[in-house]
Nucleic acid binder design. Structure first.
Lengths: 226, 226
DNA sequence: AAAATAACTCACCAAATGGTGACTATAAAA
DNA sequence: TTTTATAGTCACCATTTGGTGAGTTATTTT
Protein backbone atom coordinates (compact mmCIF):
# COMPACT_ATOMS: atom_id res chain seq x y z
CA UNK A 1 0.00 0.00 0.00
CA UNK A 2 1.43 3.28 -1.04
CA UNK A 3 1.49 6.07 1.46
CA UNK A 4 2.19 9.73 1.48
CA UNK A 5 1.79 10.03 -2.25
CA UNK A 6 0.75 13.64 -2.13
CA UNK A 7 2.96 14.52 0.80
CA UNK A 8 6.16 15.39 -0.99
CA UNK A 9 9.51 15.35 0.71
CA UNK A 10 9.72 15.01 4.48
CA UNK A 11 11.87 18.06 4.82
CA UNK A 12 10.47 21.25 3.46
CA UNK A 13 11.32 24.73 4.55
CA UNK A 14 7.90 26.09 3.70
CA UNK A 15 6.04 23.35 5.50
CA UNK A 16 8.15 23.80 8.58
CA UNK A 17 7.60 27.53 8.56
CA UNK A 18 3.90 26.87 8.37
CA UNK A 19 4.09 24.41 11.26
CA UNK A 20 5.75 27.06 13.37
CA UNK A 21 3.17 29.65 12.42
CA UNK A 22 0.40 27.20 13.25
CA UNK A 23 2.01 26.48 16.60
CA UNK A 24 1.85 30.17 17.41
CA UNK A 25 -1.85 30.20 16.68
CA UNK A 26 -2.50 27.12 18.71
CA UNK A 27 -0.65 28.38 21.77
CA UNK A 28 -2.23 31.79 21.45
CA UNK A 29 -5.70 30.32 21.42
CA UNK A 30 -5.15 27.88 24.24
CA UNK A 31 -2.72 29.54 26.62
CA UNK A 32 -2.69 33.18 25.63
CA UNK A 33 0.00 35.52 24.43
CA UNK A 34 2.18 35.30 27.53
CA UNK A 35 2.79 31.63 26.80
CA UNK A 36 4.41 32.33 23.45
CA UNK A 37 7.96 31.21 24.30
CA UNK A 38 10.55 29.79 21.93
CA UNK A 39 10.77 26.40 23.54
CA UNK A 40 7.06 25.97 23.74
CA UNK A 41 6.45 27.04 20.16
CA UNK A 42 9.14 24.71 18.88
CA UNK A 43 7.93 21.65 20.75
CA UNK A 44 4.33 22.39 19.80
CA UNK A 45 5.40 22.48 16.17
CA UNK A 46 7.44 19.33 16.69
CA UNK A 47 10.55 21.06 15.46
CA UNK A 48 13.76 22.43 16.86
CA UNK A 49 13.75 26.00 18.10
CA UNK A 50 16.82 26.70 16.03
CA UNK A 51 14.56 26.80 13.01
CA UNK A 52 12.68 29.74 14.47
CA UNK A 53 15.90 31.70 14.39
CA UNK A 54 16.90 30.35 10.99
CA UNK A 55 13.62 31.02 9.27
CA UNK A 56 12.24 34.06 11.03
CA UNK A 57 15.17 35.61 12.83
CA UNK A 58 13.57 35.19 16.25
CA UNK A 59 10.34 34.67 18.14
CA UNK A 60 9.23 38.25 17.74
CA UNK A 61 9.44 38.15 14.00
CA UNK A 62 7.69 34.80 13.93
CA UNK A 63 4.88 36.19 16.01
CA UNK A 64 4.63 39.29 13.87
CA UNK A 65 4.46 37.21 10.74
CA UNK A 66 1.75 35.12 12.30
CA UNK A 67 -0.35 38.12 13.20
CA UNK A 68 0.13 39.66 9.79
CA UNK A 69 -0.94 36.42 8.16
CA UNK A 70 -4.35 36.51 9.80
CA UNK A 71 -7.30 38.46 8.53
CA UNK A 72 -9.44 39.32 11.50
CA UNK A 73 -11.82 41.75 9.90
CA UNK A 74 -12.97 39.87 6.87
CA UNK A 75 -16.44 39.88 8.38
CA UNK A 76 -16.71 43.64 8.12
CA UNK A 77 -17.51 44.07 4.49
CA UNK A 78 -19.83 45.76 2.10
CA UNK A 79 -20.37 42.50 0.28
CA UNK A 80 -24.09 42.58 -0.13
CA UNK A 81 -24.30 46.33 -0.04
CA UNK A 82 -26.30 46.32 -3.23
CA UNK A 83 -29.09 44.40 -1.53
CA UNK A 84 -29.25 46.88 1.26
CA UNK A 85 -32.15 49.24 1.56
CA UNK A 86 -31.47 52.92 1.18
CA UNK A 87 -31.82 53.71 4.86
CA UNK A 88 -28.56 55.41 5.68
CA UNK A 89 -27.08 52.08 6.67
CA UNK A 90 -29.57 51.46 9.42
CA UNK A 91 -30.27 47.87 8.47
CA UNK A 92 -26.66 47.30 7.65
CA UNK A 93 -25.42 48.60 11.01
CA UNK A 94 -28.02 46.55 12.79
CA UNK A 95 -26.85 43.36 11.13
CA UNK A 96 -23.20 44.26 11.51
CA UNK A 97 -23.43 44.85 15.25
CA UNK A 98 -25.39 41.67 15.85
CA UNK A 99 -23.05 39.55 13.78
CA UNK A 100 -20.00 41.18 15.34
CA UNK A 101 -21.28 40.28 18.79
CA UNK A 102 -21.51 36.61 17.83
CA UNK A 103 -18.41 36.63 15.67
CA UNK A 104 -16.10 37.86 18.42
CA UNK A 105 -17.70 35.53 20.92
CA UNK A 106 -16.85 32.56 18.73
CA UNK A 107 -13.46 33.72 17.58
CA UNK A 108 -11.15 32.97 20.49
CA UNK A 109 -8.17 33.98 18.45
CA UNK A 110 -9.52 37.43 17.75
CA UNK A 111 -10.32 37.81 21.43
CA UNK A 112 -6.73 37.08 22.33
CA UNK A 113 -5.47 39.48 19.72
CA UNK A 114 -7.77 42.25 20.91
CA UNK A 115 -6.68 41.63 24.46
CA UNK A 116 -3.05 41.58 23.47
CA UNK A 117 -3.55 44.88 21.72
CA UNK A 118 -4.79 46.33 25.00
CA UNK A 119 -1.76 45.03 26.80
CA UNK A 120 1.21 45.66 24.59
CA UNK A 121 2.28 48.15 22.01
CA UNK A 122 3.45 46.15 19.04
CA UNK A 123 3.63 47.10 15.43
CA UNK A 124 1.79 44.07 14.14
CA UNK A 125 -0.94 44.50 16.73
CA UNK A 126 -1.25 48.14 15.90
CA UNK A 127 -1.79 47.08 12.32
CA UNK A 128 -4.66 44.84 13.33
CA UNK A 129 -6.27 47.84 14.97
CA UNK A 130 -5.51 49.98 11.95
CA UNK A 131 -7.05 47.38 9.67
CA UNK A 132 -10.22 47.52 11.68
CA UNK A 133 -10.24 51.26 11.26
CA UNK A 134 -9.75 50.93 7.52
CA UNK A 135 -12.50 48.35 7.18
CA UNK A 136 -14.81 50.47 9.29
CA UNK A 137 -13.96 53.65 7.48
CA UNK A 138 -15.31 52.22 4.25
CA UNK A 139 -18.69 51.78 5.87
CA UNK A 140 -18.73 54.99 7.83
CA UNK A 141 -17.54 57.22 5.05
CA UNK A 142 -19.88 55.95 2.38
CA UNK A 143 -22.91 54.93 4.35
CA UNK A 144 -23.39 56.76 7.57
CA UNK A 145 -21.43 59.98 7.02
CA UNK A 146 -23.60 61.09 4.10
CA UNK A 147 -26.77 60.19 5.94
CA UNK A 148 -25.91 61.87 9.21
CA UNK A 149 -24.31 64.88 7.63
CA UNK A 150 -23.22 67.34 10.27
CA UNK A 151 -23.90 64.68 12.87
CA UNK A 152 -21.57 62.20 11.19
CA UNK A 153 -18.94 62.52 13.87
CA UNK A 154 -21.57 62.14 16.55
CA UNK A 155 -22.72 58.93 14.93
CA UNK A 156 -19.16 57.66 14.83
CA UNK A 157 -18.73 58.31 18.54
CA UNK A 158 -21.91 56.40 19.25
CA UNK A 159 -20.67 53.50 17.17
CA UNK A 160 -17.29 53.60 18.89
CA UNK A 161 -18.97 53.09 22.24
CA UNK A 162 -21.23 50.33 21.02
CA UNK A 163 -18.63 48.39 19.06
CA UNK A 164 -16.06 48.57 21.82
CA UNK A 165 -18.76 47.53 24.26
CA UNK A 166 -19.33 44.43 22.15
CA UNK A 167 -15.65 43.60 22.27
CA UNK A 168 -15.42 44.02 25.99
CA UNK A 169 -18.50 42.02 26.79
CA UNK A 170 -17.36 39.14 24.62
CA UNK A 171 -13.90 39.09 26.15
CA UNK A 172 -15.32 39.48 29.62
CA UNK A 173 -17.61 36.53 29.15
CA UNK A 174 -14.81 34.33 27.93
CA UNK A 175 -12.85 34.54 31.18
CA UNK A 176 -13.98 35.65 34.58
CA UNK A 177 -17.24 36.95 33.41
CA UNK A 178 -20.68 35.90 34.24
CA UNK A 179 -22.88 38.88 34.80
CA UNK A 180 -22.43 42.46 33.72
CA UNK A 181 -24.96 44.96 35.00
CA UNK A 182 -26.86 41.93 36.16
CA UNK A 183 -27.11 40.44 32.68
CA UNK A 184 -25.86 36.87 32.65
CA UNK A 185 -23.78 36.74 29.50
CA UNK A 186 -23.11 33.04 29.78
CA UNK A 187 -26.78 32.32 29.23
CA UNK A 188 -28.58 32.50 25.92
CA UNK A 189 -31.20 34.72 27.52
CA UNK A 190 -28.59 37.23 28.58
CA UNK A 191 -27.00 37.33 25.17
CA UNK A 192 -30.39 37.80 23.58
CA UNK A 193 -31.01 40.72 25.87
CA UNK A 194 -27.77 42.31 24.71
CA UNK A 195 -28.78 41.77 21.11
CA UNK A 196 -32.12 43.38 21.73
CA UNK A 197 -30.29 46.29 23.28
CA UNK A 198 -28.06 46.57 20.22
CA UNK A 199 -31.08 46.66 17.95
CA UNK A 200 -32.72 49.15 20.20
CA UNK A 201 -29.65 51.36 20.05
CA UNK A 202 -29.63 51.33 16.27
CA UNK A 203 -33.29 52.23 16.22
CA UNK A 204 -32.86 55.04 18.70
CA UNK A 205 -29.87 56.45 16.91
CA UNK A 206 -31.40 56.38 13.49
CA UNK A 207 -34.70 57.77 14.68
CA UNK A 208 -33.50 60.55 16.92
CA UNK A 209 -30.06 61.51 15.70
CA UNK A 210 -30.64 62.61 12.15
CA UNK A 211 -29.16 65.93 11.25
CA UNK A 212 -31.43 68.82 12.07
CA UNK A 213 -32.90 71.12 9.45
CA UNK A 214 -33.18 68.26 7.04
CA UNK A 215 -36.41 66.51 6.64
CA UNK A 216 -35.76 62.86 6.86
CA UNK A 217 -35.81 61.63 3.34
CA UNK A 218 -38.20 58.73 3.35
CA UNK A 219 -36.05 55.68 2.88
CA UNK A 220 -37.12 53.09 0.38
CA UNK A 221 -39.06 50.45 2.20
CA UNK A 222 -37.46 47.48 0.50
CA UNK A 223 -36.06 45.57 3.40
CA UNK A 224 -34.70 42.20 2.47
CA UNK A 225 -33.48 40.21 5.37
CA UNK A 226 -31.96 36.69 5.62
CA UNK B 1 20.16 66.46 65.16
CA UNK B 2 17.64 63.81 65.94
CA UNK B 3 16.33 61.74 63.10
CA UNK B 4 13.64 59.22 62.53
CA UNK B 5 11.65 60.23 65.54
CA UNK B 6 8.35 59.10 64.18
CA UNK B 7 9.77 56.16 62.27
CA UNK B 8 9.69 53.50 64.94
CA UNK B 9 11.87 50.43 64.78
CA UNK B 10 13.84 49.71 61.64
CA UNK B 11 12.53 46.22 61.42
CA UNK B 12 8.81 45.81 61.35
CA UNK B 13 6.87 42.94 59.89
CA UNK B 14 3.90 45.13 59.08
CA UNK B 15 5.92 47.80 57.36
CA UNK B 16 7.73 45.24 55.28
CA UNK B 17 4.51 43.60 54.27
CA UNK B 18 3.25 46.97 53.19
CA UNK B 19 6.40 47.62 51.22
CA UNK B 20 5.88 44.38 49.36
CA UNK B 21 2.25 45.18 48.68
CA UNK B 22 3.24 48.61 47.42
CA UNK B 23 5.85 47.07 45.17
CA UNK B 24 3.15 44.95 43.56
CA UNK B 25 1.12 48.06 42.83
CA UNK B 26 4.08 49.89 41.42
CA UNK B 27 5.09 47.10 39.08
CA UNK B 28 1.52 46.49 38.04
CA UNK B 29 1.07 50.12 37.09
CA UNK B 30 4.35 50.48 35.27
CA UNK B 31 5.06 47.13 33.69
CA UNK B 32 1.81 45.24 33.80
CA UNK B 33 0.72 42.01 35.41
CA UNK B 34 3.10 39.77 33.47
CA UNK B 35 6.03 41.50 35.14
CA UNK B 36 4.95 40.48 38.62
CA UNK B 37 7.84 38.11 39.44
CA UNK B 38 9.26 37.30 42.84
CA UNK B 39 12.68 38.73 42.22
CA UNK B 40 11.35 41.91 40.73
CA UNK B 41 8.85 42.49 43.49
CA UNK B 42 11.45 41.91 46.18
CA UNK B 43 14.05 44.24 44.70
CA UNK B 44 11.40 46.89 44.06
CA UNK B 45 10.43 46.70 47.71
CA UNK B 46 14.09 46.76 48.70
CA UNK B 47 13.70 43.51 50.60
CA UNK B 48 14.63 39.90 50.24
CA UNK B 49 12.29 37.64 48.32
CA UNK B 50 12.34 35.19 51.19
CA UNK B 51 10.04 37.53 53.04
CA UNK B 52 7.39 37.10 50.38
CA UNK B 53 7.29 33.42 51.23
CA UNK B 54 7.53 34.06 54.96
CA UNK B 55 4.80 36.64 55.13
CA UNK B 56 2.41 35.69 52.37
CA UNK B 57 3.23 32.13 51.49
CA UNK B 58 4.14 32.97 47.92
CA UNK B 59 3.78 35.47 45.13
CA UNK B 60 0.25 34.44 44.28
CA UNK B 61 -1.01 35.06 47.76
CA UNK B 62 0.83 38.36 47.89
CA UNK B 63 -0.79 39.42 44.64
CA UNK B 64 -4.20 38.32 45.82
CA UNK B 65 -3.82 40.24 49.04
CA UNK B 66 -2.80 43.28 47.05
CA UNK B 67 -5.84 43.09 44.81
CA UNK B 68 -8.15 42.56 47.73
CA UNK B 69 -6.68 45.56 49.50
CA UNK B 70 -7.68 47.92 46.72
CA UNK B 71 -11.07 49.48 46.32
CA UNK B 72 -11.60 50.12 42.64
CA UNK B 73 -15.26 51.00 42.66
CA UNK B 74 -15.42 53.62 45.34
CA UNK B 75 -16.44 56.08 42.67
CA UNK B 76 -19.68 54.27 42.01
CA UNK B 77 -21.79 55.46 44.86
CA UNK B 78 -25.07 56.96 45.78
CA UNK B 79 -23.34 59.62 47.81
CA UNK B 80 -25.25 62.65 46.75
CA UNK B 81 -28.37 60.77 45.82
CA UNK B 82 -30.44 63.05 47.91
CA UNK B 83 -29.49 66.01 45.74
CA UNK B 84 -30.53 64.16 42.65
CA UNK B 85 -33.61 65.15 40.77
CA UNK B 86 -36.46 62.73 40.63
CA UNK B 87 -35.87 61.61 37.07
CA UNK B 88 -35.49 57.87 37.29
CA UNK B 89 -31.75 58.25 37.61
CA UNK B 90 -31.33 60.02 34.32
CA UNK B 91 -29.11 62.75 35.64
CA UNK B 92 -27.34 60.32 37.89
CA UNK B 93 -26.55 57.91 35.08
CA UNK B 94 -25.40 60.76 32.90
CA UNK B 95 -22.92 61.94 35.50
CA UNK B 96 -21.86 58.43 36.36
CA UNK B 97 -21.01 57.51 32.78
CA UNK B 98 -19.13 60.72 32.16
CA UNK B 99 -17.15 60.45 35.36
CA UNK B 100 -16.46 56.78 34.77
CA UNK B 101 -15.02 57.59 31.38
CA UNK B 102 -12.53 60.00 32.92
CA UNK B 103 -11.95 57.96 36.03
CA UNK B 104 -10.85 54.84 34.19
CA UNK B 105 -8.75 56.90 31.81
CA UNK B 106 -6.81 58.34 34.72
CA UNK B 107 -6.63 55.21 36.83
CA UNK B 108 -3.86 53.15 35.25
CA UNK B 109 -4.11 50.62 37.99
CA UNK B 110 -7.75 49.94 37.38
CA UNK B 111 -7.02 49.60 33.68
CA UNK B 112 -4.44 46.94 34.39
CA UNK B 113 -6.78 45.12 36.70
CA UNK B 114 -9.61 45.19 34.19
CA UNK B 115 -7.25 43.92 31.53
CA UNK B 116 -5.93 41.24 33.81
CA UNK B 117 -9.47 40.17 34.49
CA UNK B 118 -9.95 39.68 30.77
CA UNK B 119 -6.82 37.60 30.58
CA UNK B 120 -6.81 35.33 33.56
CA UNK B 121 -9.29 33.59 35.77
CA UNK B 122 -8.28 34.36 39.29
CA UNK B 123 -10.36 34.45 42.40
CA UNK B 124 -9.25 37.89 43.51
CA UNK B 125 -9.87 39.31 40.06
CA UNK B 126 -13.25 37.71 39.93
CA UNK B 127 -14.00 39.46 43.16
CA UNK B 128 -13.15 42.81 41.64
CA UNK B 129 -15.67 42.09 38.91
CA UNK B 130 -18.20 40.93 41.48
CA UNK B 131 -17.66 44.07 43.50
CA UNK B 132 -18.47 46.13 40.45
CA UNK B 133 -21.65 44.16 40.05
CA UNK B 134 -22.58 44.73 43.65
CA UNK B 135 -21.90 48.45 43.47
CA UNK B 136 -23.85 48.69 40.24
CA UNK B 137 -26.71 46.62 41.54
CA UNK B 138 -27.40 49.17 44.23
CA UNK B 139 -27.96 51.78 41.58
CA UNK B 140 -29.83 49.62 39.13
CA UNK B 141 -32.13 48.02 41.60
CA UNK B 142 -33.20 51.17 43.40
CA UNK B 143 -33.02 53.76 40.69
CA UNK B 144 -33.48 52.44 37.21
CA UNK B 145 -35.39 49.20 37.78
CA UNK B 146 -38.39 50.92 39.37
CA UNK B 147 -38.40 53.59 36.71
CA UNK B 148 -38.12 51.30 33.71
CA UNK B 149 -40.42 48.68 35.10
CA UNK B 150 -40.91 45.89 32.62
CA UNK B 151 -38.09 47.35 30.59
CA UNK B 152 -35.67 47.19 33.50
CA UNK B 153 -33.70 44.35 32.03
CA UNK B 154 -33.56 46.11 28.70
CA UNK B 155 -32.13 49.16 30.39
CA UNK B 156 -29.53 47.02 32.10
CA UNK B 157 -28.45 45.54 28.79
CA UNK B 158 -28.10 49.01 27.34
CA UNK B 159 -25.98 50.07 30.28
CA UNK B 160 -23.87 46.94 30.00
CA UNK B 161 -22.95 47.86 26.45
CA UNK B 162 -22.23 51.48 27.27
CA UNK B 163 -20.22 50.88 30.42
CA UNK B 164 -18.13 48.15 28.88
CA UNK B 165 -17.61 50.38 25.87
CA UNK B 166 -16.20 53.00 28.20
CA UNK B 167 -13.79 50.47 29.68
CA UNK B 168 -12.61 49.27 26.32
CA UNK B 169 -12.12 52.71 24.85
CA UNK B 170 -10.10 53.85 27.85
CA UNK B 171 -7.88 50.78 27.79
CA UNK B 172 -7.53 50.98 24.05
CA UNK B 173 -6.39 54.57 24.22
CA UNK B 174 -3.80 53.80 26.83
CA UNK B 175 -1.82 51.42 24.62
CA UNK B 176 -1.94 51.01 20.89
CA UNK B 177 -4.91 53.16 20.46
CA UNK B 178 -5.33 56.30 18.58
CA UNK B 179 -8.54 56.29 16.63
CA UNK B 180 -11.63 54.16 17.03
CA UNK B 181 -14.31 54.53 14.38
CA UNK B 182 -12.31 57.51 13.25
CA UNK B 183 -12.53 59.26 16.61
CA UNK B 184 -9.10 60.26 17.85
CA UNK B 185 -9.24 59.32 21.50
CA UNK B 186 -5.85 60.79 22.29
CA UNK B 187 -7.17 64.25 21.53
CA UNK B 188 -9.40 66.27 23.80
CA UNK B 189 -11.77 66.81 20.89
CA UNK B 190 -12.20 63.10 20.41
CA UNK B 191 -12.82 62.49 24.06
CA UNK B 192 -15.37 65.28 24.11
CA UNK B 193 -17.13 63.67 21.19
CA UNK B 194 -17.37 60.42 23.15
CA UNK B 195 -18.76 62.29 26.11
CA UNK B 196 -21.34 63.95 23.95
CA UNK B 197 -22.25 60.54 22.63
CA UNK B 198 -22.62 59.23 26.18
CA UNK B 199 -24.94 62.09 27.06
CA UNK B 200 -26.85 61.55 23.89
CA UNK B 201 -27.28 57.88 24.73
CA UNK B 202 -28.67 58.68 28.15
CA UNK B 203 -31.10 61.13 26.62
CA UNK B 204 -32.22 58.69 23.96
CA UNK B 205 -32.66 55.87 26.41
CA UNK B 206 -34.62 57.88 28.94
CA UNK B 207 -36.78 59.51 26.31
CA UNK B 208 -37.62 56.53 24.18
CA UNK B 209 -37.30 53.49 26.40
CA UNK B 210 -39.79 54.10 29.15
CA UNK B 211 -42.14 51.25 29.80
CA UNK B 212 -45.19 51.29 27.65
CA UNK B 213 -48.73 51.48 28.99
CA UNK B 214 -47.58 53.03 32.19
CA UNK B 215 -47.74 56.68 32.81
CA UNK B 216 -44.54 57.68 34.45
CA UNK B 217 -45.27 57.31 38.13
CA UNK B 218 -43.39 59.76 40.25
CA UNK B 219 -41.22 57.63 42.55
CA UNK B 220 -40.98 58.48 46.23
CA UNK B 221 -38.29 60.94 46.95
CA UNK B 222 -37.02 59.40 50.18
CA UNK B 223 -33.58 58.06 49.57
CA UNK B 224 -31.98 56.90 52.79
CA UNK B 225 -28.30 56.31 52.90
CA UNK B 226 -25.97 54.37 55.28
C1' DA C 1 26.79 6.82 -6.97
C1' DA C 2 29.15 10.78 -5.30
C1' DA C 3 29.07 15.49 -4.18
C1' DA C 4 26.81 19.49 -2.78
C1' DT C 5 23.23 21.87 -0.67
C1' DA C 6 19.76 22.63 2.47
C1' DA C 7 16.86 20.96 6.41
C1' DC C 8 17.18 19.68 10.69
C1' DT C 9 18.98 17.95 15.48
C1' DC C 10 21.59 18.16 19.54
C1' DA C 11 24.55 19.43 23.04
C1' DC C 12 25.66 23.19 25.29
C1' DC C 13 25.86 27.92 27.43
C1' DA C 14 24.17 32.18 29.79
C1' DA C 15 20.74 34.50 32.10
C1' DA C 16 16.55 34.74 34.51
C1' DT C 17 13.36 32.83 37.63
C1' DG C 18 11.38 30.32 41.62
C1' DG C 19 12.37 28.56 45.95
C1' DT C 20 14.78 27.29 50.50
C1' DG C 21 18.11 26.28 54.57
C1' DA C 22 21.31 28.24 57.32
C1' DC C 23 22.93 32.20 59.03
C1' DT C 24 23.06 37.28 61.03
C1' DA C 25 21.06 41.47 63.01
C1' DT C 26 17.73 43.71 65.65
C1' DA C 27 14.26 44.51 69.13
C1' DA C 28 11.99 43.19 73.05
C1' DA C 29 11.78 40.37 77.31
C1' DA C 30 14.20 38.53 81.22
C1' DT D 1 23.27 42.74 80.35
C1' DT D 2 21.93 38.52 78.79
C1' DT D 3 18.49 35.93 76.59
C1' DT D 4 15.13 35.07 73.32
C1' DA D 5 12.16 35.65 69.52
C1' DT D 6 11.82 37.23 65.06
C1' DA D 7 12.98 40.30 61.11
C1' DG D 8 15.92 40.06 57.57
C1' DT D 9 20.08 38.48 54.60
C1' DC D 10 22.76 35.47 51.81
C1' DA D 11 24.43 31.71 49.45
C1' DC D 12 22.86 28.18 47.00
C1' DC D 13 20.13 24.96 43.99
C1' DA D 14 16.69 23.52 40.43
C1' DT D 15 14.15 24.77 36.53
C1' DT D 16 12.98 27.47 32.76
C1' DT D 17 14.06 30.41 29.09
C1' DG D 18 16.60 32.39 25.17
C1' DG D 19 20.15 31.54 22.02
C1' DT D 20 23.98 29.28 19.14
C1' DG D 21 27.95 26.30 16.97
C1' DA D 22 28.90 22.16 15.31
C1' DG D 23 27.37 18.13 13.61
C1' DT D 24 23.80 14.85 11.22
C1' DT D 25 20.32 13.60 7.86
C1' DA D 26 17.67 14.18 3.83
C1' DT D 27 17.19 16.01 -0.82
C1' DT D 28 18.89 17.58 -5.03
C1' DT D 29 22.41 18.13 -8.36
C1' DT D 30 26.11 16.38 -11.03
Amino acid sequence: MERKVVEGPVRSREKSKQKLLNAVGKILKTKGFTALKVNDIATTAGLDKKLIYNYFGGVDQLIDEYIRSQDFWSNITLENAADMPDDGGREFMRLMLLSQFDYVAKNKELQKILLWGLYESRKSLKRVADDREIAGEVLLKHISDPFFGEKALHFRALMAIIVSGIYYLDMFTAVNGKTFCGIDLTQAAGRTEIKKALESLVTMIYETQQPVKKKRTAPKKTVARP
